[in-house]
């Protein structure tokens, strides 16, 4: 069972998504979708993923809401920098942030969050030292960004993935 279906929940989600996208419940799409769901599970096992060990669903919802608000807010902020006249006054630069997060899935999600909020870019992560290098468009106070990444996102990602 575990060899055939290493990640039952993910496989089930894959099958449901396949059926939804193909908009039918006949035999053909179910067979093809099951095949893809099985193969998805095997692929994840090949990648030695620990994706199934996600806990704390309330933190996921909390984080999703937070990210949605931040995406909208930073879109407005970057838009006003581009359209506004003060664009030559902004200083942008690199910020080094020491992270406690080591889970690969958690880091991948953090990369998506940081890039999806305009104004911050993920540049580099050194696994040995755990230092994340960011590029920030409107860099006023470096410690504020360290506080923001660690307090807003990393704390919740640690709850979810570790």
């Amino acid at each position: 069972m575990t060899r055939l279906l290493p990640f039952p929940l993910i496989s089930l989600c894959l099958l449901a998504m396949w059926l939804w996208l193909s908009q039918s419940l006949s035999l053909g799409p179910i067979l093809l979708g099951s095949l893809f769901a099985l193969m998805g599970g095997w692929l994840l096992r090949l990648l030695q993923s620990d994706a199934d060990r996600v806990r704390n669903p309330s933190a996921i919802i909390q984080l999703a809401g937070l990210v949605l608000i931040d995406v909208i807010r930073s879109n407005i902020a970057v838009g006003s920098i581009i359209l506004g006249g003060q664009r030559n006054n902004i200083t942008s630069g690199f910020v080094d942030i020491p992270l406690d997060l080591r889970s690969r899935q958690g880091l991948a999600v953090l990369a998506c969050i940081i890039t999806s909020t305009p104004g911050t870019l993920w540049v580099n992560f050194t696994r040995e030292t755990g230092v994340l290098q960011l590029h920030v468009l409107d860099l006023v106070d470096e410690s504020e960004w360290v506080e923001r990444i660690k307090g807003r996102y990393e704390r919740r990602l640690l709850e979810i993935f570790e």
Binding site: V71, I72, N75, V78, G79, I82, R87, N88, I90, S92, T115, S116, T117, P118, G119, T120, L121, H135, L137
Partner: peptide
């Protein structure tokens, strides 16, 4: 409108998100 590559690299993220 933005100056320098590292500032401009932030520009496309508006289109790719919202």
């Amino acid at each position: 409108r933005l100056d320098g590559f590292y500032q401009r690299a932030h520009a496309p993220t508006l289109g790719t998100t919202l």
